[in-house]
Write a protein that binds this DNA or RNA. Structure first.
Lengths: 209, 209
DNA sequence: GGCGGCGTTGGGCGATCGCCCAAGGCGACT
DNA sequence: AGTCGCCTTGGGCGATCGCCCAACGCCGCC
C-alpha cells in the first residue's frame, strides 16, 4: 500500500466531510462537535482544525458539496425523459431512496436553516437553488409548460417540503405524491391572469359526499 | 399591582416559551442555551429549571404550542371561503406575513427536524400534521377535489417547502406561488396517458359513510 | 544517510454548557 | 403577628465545548 502523505491527507479530509454530513442529520447542525466528528471519521481530534479553518467551515463545505452533487445528479435524470409526466415520475423516484433517515433528505433542510445564520453559506445555497430552478424551468418550457419559472420554483419548494414531511410521515412516498404533482404540470393553459375554470370539473366529480 | 405569586409564575413561564420560540429560529434548536433563554425572557437563569424539567422539554413545549396555534389559526381562515381557489388565496396570504425572519416560518422546519431526534416531539408533530391534513382534505372533498387526502398531504408539504425556500429567496411570495398551486386543485380532468393510477389509498382513510 | 516538511498526535486552555441548590423575598393563611 | 409555601436568586458543579500547539512519524530529496 504505497500512498503519499498528501494522498492520505486528502482521504482524511474526505472522511471528515462524509462524517459531517452524517452527523448534521443525526444531531442537527449545531449538535456536531469536533470530537464526535473526529471519532466518526476515525481520526485524531486535532486533525479537524488542521484541514479546516473552523468547524463551521467544515460543515458548510460538507453541506454545499453534498447539495451540489444532489442537484447535478437529479438534473440529467429527468432531462432525458420526453414527456413532462414521465420526467416528474423519474425525478420523484430518484428521491424515493431518501427515506428520511438517510444522510441526504434532511441534510438539505438543515442546510437551508443554517444558511439563514451564515452569509457565506446562504449565497452558496442561493446559487445552487437558482441553478436547479433554471434547469427545471428550461426543461418545463421546452415541453410547453405554462409559467415555467414559477412552476419550477414551486415544484422545487414542493419537493423539499415533501422530503421534510417524509421525516415525520414516511408513508408520503412518490406513489402518493406523483398523481397530485402531475396536475401542477398539466393543469392550466397559457394565461396567468385568466379566470379559473371551475365549471368543467364540477360535473366530473365522482366522489360521494 | 395586585398579582399573586402563582400569576407572576405563570407569566414567567409564558415569557420563557416566547423567548424559546424566538431563539430556536435565531440560533437553531441546539443553539438555544439556558442562559440566553433566561436573558431574553429577562428572568434569572435558575428559573428555567424551576418551571421546566429540562431544556429540551421547554423547547418542545414552546414549539408544539406554537405549531398548534398556527394550525388552528389557518384552518378557519380558508374554511369560510366558498371556492377552492379563493380558499387557497386566503391561506397563502395568511402565510405571507411570515417573511422568513419571523419566529414562525422557520420554527416549523426546525421543529420537524428536531422531531426526528425526539420521540415525544415526533408524535406531537405527527398528530398536528395529521390534524391539519384532515381539515384540509375535508374542505377539499366538499368542494369536489379529486383525491382529497393525497392532495391535502402534498399541499401541506408544498406550503412548508415554500416557507423553507422563502428563507433563502424572499421573492417567493404568495403572488408567485398561487397561480401554480391553483393547478393542483383544479387540474386532473384529462391526464396524459400515463397509467400512473395508484389511487389505491394506502394512507389513513377517514371513514365517512 | 541526514534533513526538511507535511500530516498527525493527544493533551491543554479558557469559556460555556445543562443542571442543581442553599438561601432569601413575599403574599396568603391561621 | 407569625408561619407556611411558592417563586426567585445567583453562584457552583462536573462535563464538554472550539481551538490551539509542542512534539512526533514518516516519506521524498539532496
Amino acid at each position: 500500500m504505497a500512498m503519499t502523505a498528501a494522498e492520505r491527507g486528502r482521504q482524511v479530509r474526505e472522511r471528515l466531510l462524509t462524517a459531517a454530513r452524517e452527523l448534521i442529520v443525526e444531531r442537527g447542525w449545531r449538535g456536531v462537535t469536533t470530537r464526535t466528528l473526529a471519532e466518526r471519521a476515525r481520526v485524531a481530534p486535532g486533525l479537524v482544525h488542521y484541514h479546516f479553518g473552523s468547524l463551521q467551515e467544515l460543515l458548510g463545505e460538507a453541506a454545499i458539496s453534498a447539495l451540489r452533487e444532489l442537484v447535478r445528479s437529479i438534473g440529467p435524470n429527468f432531462q432525458q425523459a420526453s414527456s413532462m409526466s414521465a420526467g416528474l415520475d423519474l425525478m420523484l423516484m430518484a428521491l424515493d431512496r431518501y427515506t428520511g433517515d438517510d444522510p441526504m433528505s434532511l441534510l438539505v433542510c438543515e442546510t437551508y436553516l443554517a444558511s439563514t445564520r451564515d452569509a457565506t453559506l446562504r449565497t452558496a445555497v442561493e446559487s445552487l437553488l437558482s441553478e436547479f430552478r433554471v434547469v427545471l424551468a428550461d426543461w418545463l418550457r421546452d415541453r410547453g409548460c405554462a409559467q415555467p419559472e414559477q412552476t419550477a420554483a414551486v415544484l422545487a419548494a414542493a419537493i423539499d417540503g415533501i422530503m421534510l414531511h417524509r421525516a415525520v410521515d414516511p408513508s408520503l412516498t412518490s406513489g402518493v405524491v406523483a398523481p397530485v404533482l402531475q396536475r401542477v404540470l398539466t393543469g392550466d393553459r397559457d394565461r396567468p391572469r385568466s379566470a379559473m375554470r371551475r365549471s368543467s370539473n364540477r360535473s366530473k366529480r365522482r366522489e360521494r359526499s
